[in-house]
């Protein structure tokens, strides 16, 4: 892989095999076996034959409607899901902030969750202790909330804390999946600021967002995913334009069809 690439994705396909059973249990499996039935499953191709290079220091926006496979792609780059076909090569330390926030345990305090999240992502205790206050300050939680159980947080506070944790890890590659929608206008401004700073430090950022303004503001490249495939790649303005037209018209522009 060339040195200037942070991520290289080659012909990547990811399929889910979904069981149509209400619950997968041994009981059901034995019943099926005794009746000589097969488990009813459906194959969902979440990502289909995607090829993409992301150079170091670039900010890539990913747009697409629900179910386009954006989150699946992000999870694969983070090493959480493995490819069904093709391969992904990643060069650098990754920090993720995926759709549902980091793995917060609602019974534990914000501080304890920061510690756990940090340890899981490979930091050591000293590094985390150094960062906790910084994170709490950035998330701008009301007084004392950092030591209260996370279940007492409002969804905005939860989102802000998640974002603060993800950007504090000084990753080489930052994956943000619908993470910027959290928080009020003031926090949004602050998080944009932080993202621009990360860009200036030549870190690589991938942003999935339904707020298309985010993509045009922050990204230098964008891709549009539709039903698991990449239908277009280019300047954020153009991609967002095309995507908006598609949303209004409801069909793919003809010139994208053979891409």
């Amino acid at each position: 892989m060339p040195d200037d690439l942070a991520i290289r994705i080659e012909n990547l396909s990811i399929t889910y095999k979904v069981s149509l059973e209400a619950k997968r249990t041994m009981k059901n499996a034995l019943m099926r076996a005794s009746l000589k039935q097969k488990e009813r499953t459906r194959i969902i191709e979440a990502v289909k034959g995607l090829t993409l290079d992301v150079p170091h220091g670039s900010v890539l926006g990913i747009v697409g409607s629900n179910g386009a496979g954006k989150s699946t792609l992000m999870r694969c780059i983070a090493g959480i899901l493995s490819p069904t076909e093709g391969r992904v090569v990643v060069n650098g330390k990754i920090s993720t902030l995926l759709a549902l926030g980091v793995g917060f345990n609602p019974a534990l305090s914000g501080r304890d969750n920061i510690i756990l999240g940090g340890l899981a992502s490979g930091l050591n205790m000293d590094e985390i202790a150094e960062k906790t206050d910084e994170i709490a300050e950035f998330a701008a939680l009301p007084d004392g909330f950092i030591d209260l159980p996370v279940r007492t947080y409002s969804s905005g506070m939860y989102g802000r804390l998640s974002f603060a944790v993800a950007v504090s890890m000084t990753p080489d590659i930052l994956l943000l999946d619908e993470a910027l929608s959290a928080g009020d206008a003031a926090f949004k401004e602050k998080s944009f600021e932080r993202m621009r700073q990360l860009c200036a430090e030549a870190r690589t950022i991938l942003i999935v967002s339904h707020a298309l303004a985010t993509v045009t503001d922050l990204c230098d490249t964008a891709i549009w995913m539709h039903k698991g495939a990449m239908v277009a790649k280019g300047k954020p303005e153009e991609i967002v334009d095309g995507y908006l037209k598609f949303l209004n018209v409801g069909s793919l522009p003809s010139n994208y069809e053979d891409m």
């Binding site: 892989m1 694969c76 780059i77 090493g79 493995s82 490819p83 069904t84 076909e85 093709g86 391969r87 992904v88 090569v89 990643v90 060069n91 650098g92 330390k93 000084t170 080489d172």
Partner: peptide, 12 residues
């Protein structure tokens, strides 16, 4: 602190 760390994810 950047240690180039290349990870490859492939089907298993």
């Amino acid at each position: 602190g950047f240690v180039p760390k290349i990870q490859v994810f492939e089907p298993h």
